[in-house]
């Protein structure tokens, strides 16, 4: 016992332990897992991270690809108080879908595709085995961000469509699609991107739950099991990775914003 304490350096003063930890951290050494001796934390993270990135990345890309056209389309259809029923259907269904948390949607999908008549076995409900196994976890993760983003895109585009420069663009007698995509959308993108950065962060947090529901061998399920087994070096390492990922996302959003919107770059400098 005492030998183990000494080996782990627990007898050293706290600050020295911390400095030691930071030194190792800079060298990419997160320590060793307690529950899986012999495996370093970095090895486990290295194994698990790609699965999580795959899941979150795909869900994010799909959310963006669906929500932006959907939002622009809804804006074009419902502009100026037209098609009020379409608007009501869109708004209310988006509120409902946004309120269903990803893990409950995942449970529902597991029920449907694991038990449902006629749907049984179309998509795997658990594990990571080929592209088909991605379908259900990605749907669970993507639905809420998609509807939230589509709503924001619609509102932003509608606001932009009231701008003077849209009237100028209309005086050039452009086709509707060019008006919306070339003139309105780039001006609506600031708010959309800012929010999508937040949503991507939330999406990554959501993977923790969805991975647990669908037995996806990613970082999230690993974190939950390590919390339950009190494997603190592993927990620390994974939390750190998540934190860094979130910070990097925020940075990327800021950079992309500066590239897309020349005004924001000017204001920063």
């Amino acid at each position: 016992m005492e030998a183990r304490r000494a080996a782990l350096g627990l007898n050293d003063p706290i600050w020295s332990q911390y400095v030691h930890y930071l030194k190792n951290l800079l060298a990419g050494d997160f320590g060793e897992s307690i529950t899986r001796p012999g495996l370093s934390v970095s090895q486990i993270i290295g194994q698990r991270l790609p699965a999580t990135i795959e899941l979150a990345g795909l869900a994010f890309v799909i959310a963006m690809l669906v929500s932006i056209p959907l939002g622009v389309l809804m804006a074009a259809l419902t502009r100026g108080g037209r098609r009020q029923r379409t608007e009501l259907a869109f708004t209310s269904s988006s509120i409902v879908f946004a309120a269903i948390p990803e893990f409950i949607l995942a449970v529902g999908l597991v029920c449907l595709f694991g038990q449902g008549v006629g749907l049984l076995g179309i998509f795997p409900v658990a594990g990571r085995s080929g592209p088909l196994s991605l379908v259900l976890p990605v749907i669970s993760l993507a639905v809420a961000p998609t509807v939230v983003l589509a709503r924001v895109v619609r509102v932003e585009v509608l606001t932009v469509m009231e701008a003077d420069y849209i009237r100028t663009a209309r005086s050039k007698r452009l086709r509707a699609w060019r008006l919306y995509l070339r003139h309105a959308l780039p001006n609506a993108v600031t708010a959309t991107l800012t929010l999508s950065g937040l949503l991507l962060g939330g999406l990554i947090a959501g993977t923790v739950l969805v991975e647990s529901v669908m037995a996806w061998p990613g970082l999230g399920s690993s974190m939950v099991s390590s919390i339950l087994t009190k494997d603190y070096p592993l927990v620390q390492g994974i939390v750190l990775v998540y934190g860094v990922v979130v910070l990097v996302i925020n940075l990327v959003v800021d950079v992309v914003l500066a590239v897309l919107d020349p005004r924001s770059a000017i204001q920063e400098s």
């Binding site: 701008a163 420069y165 050039k172 780039p186 001006n187 919107d261």
Partner: peptide, 29 residues
């Protein structure tokens, strides 16, 4: 038919360069 609007600050698309904004009519029409 050419149009000149009241507020030049808000009447240009802030995300497009001036040249392409002018060129749009010539290119498309």
């Amino acid at each position: 038919l050419g149009l000149v609007f009241q507020n030049p600050t808000t009447s240009f698309n802030p995300t497009m360069r001036i040249g392409p904004q002018l060129a749009e009519v010539a290119r498309l029409h």
